[in-house]
Design a protein around this nucleic acid. Structure first.
Length: 156
DNA sequence: GCCAACGTTGGC
DNA sequence: GCCAACGTTGGC
């Protein structure tokens, strides 16, 4: 009996990596997360098959643009060892990696994206534990409950 | 491009 | 362990 499927929301800037990019490549190693809380969610919380909402920030209409899924367990983010990468971390070693990632697989693009405005307008239904719209939270990887997942994807 | 809010770093 | 300085996020 496998553990219950979990749900997540992951952010990207579409100029950096968009839902269209994910559709094109199919699977993408989610490189570059450099926040410990976000790392812990990937490393300790994610299982193959978990659902992912792909959120785009820093764009005309911030919001959820697609659905993806976790397709690997967590492993060390190779970019932390790459001196030429902007994600290089001098304090990380292969023996003691600091940053982890998972591979994310394309599921579908939303016919109608869910703008942040709409999400905010339904804050009551989503509850106070929804980190995306909690004041001051900037996590790029955050948990979504099954109820929140259902609510979000049913938003008008 | 601005800036509020937060996380991280490093001197002490 | 405090906290100022700095860097980043991300909406606007």
């Amino acid at each position: 009996m496998s553990p219950r499927k979990r749900y997540w929301l992951m952010k990207s800037e579409p100029t950096d990596f968009s839902i269209d990019d994910l559709q094109r490549v199919g699977t993408e190693p989610w490189t570059g997360v450099r926040n410990y809380q976000a790392r812990n969610f990937m490393r300790d919380g994610m299982k193959v098959g978990d659902g992912v909402l792909l959120y785009h920030s820093n764009c005309d209409v911030p919001g959820i643009y697609g659905v993806a899924e976790v397709v690997s367990t967590a492993y060390p983010d190779p970019s932390q060892f790459d001196k030429k990468s902007k994600y290089h971390d001098a304090k990380a070693t292969r023996e003691q990696p600091r940053w982890f990632l998972v591979d994310v697989g394309f599921v579908r693009k939303l016919a109608t994206p869910i703008p942040l405005d709409t999400i905010r307008a339904h804050a009551d239904a989503l509850g106070e534990d929804f980190a995306l719209i909690r004041k001051g939270t900037r996590l790029s990887v955050l948990p979504v409950s099954a109820a929140q997942w259902k609510t979000l994807l049913a938003l008008p």
